[in-house]
């Protein structure tokens, strides 16, 4: 998956989990927990959405690697 597709997948998942987050113009440096205020269940839902729609499984051990929008996009691009 290229970076563009990965970004689209991450935005789609984010909109699903947090409909109030405006993905257009979203700062890539935004932190998922602190800035987007996703709690553990939201995060789980986000990961689940990515697994189902983008085919990317983020194992729990990798949670630490996907703390920001940018790192999540990169992770999806790399693993899809």
């Amino acid at each position: 998956m290229n970076e563009h597709e990965a970004r689209a997948a991450v935005y789609a998942a984010t909109s699903q989990v947090a409909p109030d987050v405006e993905t257009q113009g979203l700062d890539d440096r935004s932190r998922l927990r602190q800035d987007l205020e996703l709690d553990s269940l939201d995060f789980l839902a986000l990961v689940e959405h990515l697994a189902r729609h983008a085919g990317v499984d983020v194992p729990e051990g990798d949670y630490g690697r996907v703390g920001t929008v940018a790192s999540l996009i990169a992770y999806v691009a790399e693993h899809a």
């Binding site: 269940l41 697994a51 729990e60």
Partner: peptide, 17 residues
């Protein structure tokens, strides 16, 4: 929890809560 989650698909994973 990590051990359990490692065996599971995302939708069946647990959170500490």
């Amino acid at each position: 929890m990590h051990a359990v989650n490692a065996q599971r698909s995302v939708s069946a994973r647990l959170v500490p809560a």
